[in-house]
Design a protein around this nucleic acid. Structure first.
Length: 360
DNA sequence: GATCCGTGGCC
DNA sequence: TGGCCAAGGAT
């Protein structure tokens, strides 16, 4: 199936057209690791500015390990999938404690690190250490399913194993790093999900999908379930000094470690101000007065549901107990111009931007 | 195996 | 506009 001719076609193409990306200017496994984590489910253009800021602030694994998670999350804010940042911080500590700060160089050692799975371990082994481990990411799945005409559902692990066997057979064992990056570069820039640029593809003439005029049929992916929509109401509680109440989300939760305005999901037949009162009573043990109408409404799409977020001004009622978080996580009263110092998820950040403008 | 986990760009 | 997609991993 795979031949030296195939490998050479791809490598020649890659060495001719490859993008000049910052992580391609280094063989430092630490920097390769940072880039691979950031690029998980994330486009190059979105990751680029984060990579620059992150590697400037944390030039080595030791500096990352000794920094508070809150500061790491602040640098990660907006990039999404925040468990990546929490896991990376934990892995940095593992590397310092278990490996004396030297980045591990075996596949098993990499897999034992938090946040490193089969893809990332293979990527680091091949790119940073020149070891022949094939990567199988979304790009490789798409390229190989078209190249060999694999029509089974790529959501199935059996299909992915089949594709992994092809990737192993095709891998150039003398330049595994370039080969893996070439496969991904091809998927990202030529063999794209929609309207692939087949005339500029090194595999055009040997591609099963192209020869059958069927690039749109590969890869086959079974339909996704549609995402539910929720109404969310939050309270922006202001004290007598004008400070605002924010709460930190638990590390093991969605958006874990980020800060937010307290609130929650609207129940059936519940007015939104009542949602705010109920949620703040449940979460913080306080009684609050809430505006009748929200001062801002934000629509937002998460990975598996969508929300409409309604933000209400609120104040503690006379005689209310002070806020005490029932989940044991920190809360804080902060001035509007201090909100930049905390990591907020996107929908909440839109609220803070309004408040900071109003605070000027 | 199925589900959870963010955000931005694209059509 | 709504759904799809992006260099996946953990549970």
């Amino acid at each position: 199936m795979a031949s030296d001719a195939d490998r050479n076609l791809l490598l020649e193409w890659y060495r001719r057209v490859r993008r000049d990306l910052p992580w391609r200017r280094s063989r430092d496994p630490y920097r390769i690791w940072i880039s691979e984590i950031m690029l998980q489910q994330t486009r190059v253009d979105q990751a680029l500015p984060y990579y620059e800021r992150f590697t400037t602030r944390f030039p080595d694994v030791t500096s990352l390990a000794r920094t508070d998670l809150d500061e790491v999350l602040r640098l990660w804010e907006g990039l999404g999938y925040y468990s990546r940042a929490r896991n990376m911080h934990k892995a940095a500590k593992q590397i310092v404690e278990v490996h004396n700060g030297r980045f591990p160089g075996t596949h098993d050692e990499l897999l034992s690190l938090q946040g490193i799975g089969p893809y990332t371990a293979a990527a680091i082994m091949s790119i940073a250490f020149d070891e022949p481990w094939p990567v199988v990411d979304g790009n490789v799945i798409r390229v190989i399913s078209r190249l060999y005409g694999i029509g089974e559902d790529v959501r199935l692990s059996l299909t992915q194993k089949q594709i992994a066997r092809h990737a192993t057979a095709l891998l150039d064992r003398s330049s595994p790093g370039d080969f893996n990056q070439a496969m991904m570069e091809l998927g990202a820039t030529v063999c794209t999900p929609k309207a692939p640029s087949c005339p500029s593809c090194p595999f055009q003439l040997r591609c099963h999908a192209y020869r059958n005029g069927a690039t749109g049929k590969y890869p086959f992916k079974s339909p996704a379930k549609k995402r539910p929509h929720h109404q969310i109401a939050v309270g922006v509680v202001r004290d007598e000094r004008g400070r605002l109440l924010i709460a930190r989300r638990p590390d093991n939760a969605m958006l874990g470690g980020l800060w937010e305005f307290p609130g929650g999901k609207q129940e059936d037949d519940e007015a939104l101000p009542d949602t705010v009162r109920r949620e703040l009573r449940e979460e913080l043990g306080v009684e609050v007065g809430v505006d009748q109408m929200p001062f801002q409404t934000v629509r937002h799409a998460y990975s598996h549901f969508t929300i409409t977020l309604h933000a209400f001004h609120a104040t503690l009622e006379q005689g209310s107990a002070p806020p005490v978080p029932q989940n044991g996580e920190p809360i804080r009263w902060v001035a509007a111009d201090e909100l930049v110092g905390y990591a907020f998820p996107k929908a909440n950040r839109k609220i803070t931007e309004t408040l900071m403008r109003a605070g000027k």
